[in-house]
């Protein structure tokens, strides 16, 4: 059962990273326009290189 000593912290850290990533997306206003973001995916404007 010693494996638990590694696995539990690992799972907690992974979960924590997920949570931090979520908070980052939230602060970065990525949920302001869900519909528009879905549609922008289909636009061909910046397919070859990113928007300058």
């Amino acid at each position: 059962m010693e494996i638990l000593a590694y696995l539990i912290p690992v799972s907690l850290v992974l979960g924590g990273i997920g949570l931090l990533a979520f908070l980052w997306t939230l602060r970065n206003r990525q949920y302001d326009d869900p519909e528009g973001d879905g549609q922008r995916l289909l636009a061909k404007d910046w397919d070859n290189h990113p928007r300058p």
Partner: peptide
């Protein structure tokens, strides 16, 4: 209501002299 609308509106507005940025929010 669609991706083409977003692109059209943003492109047209950016063509206007003096407009620095234009961003469509489709949800609202």
């Amino acid at each position: 209501h669609c991706a083409v609308c977003i692109a059209d509106v943003e492109r047209e507005l950016l063509l206007h002299p003096g407009v620095r940025s234009a961003r469509v929010n489709l949800t609202q």
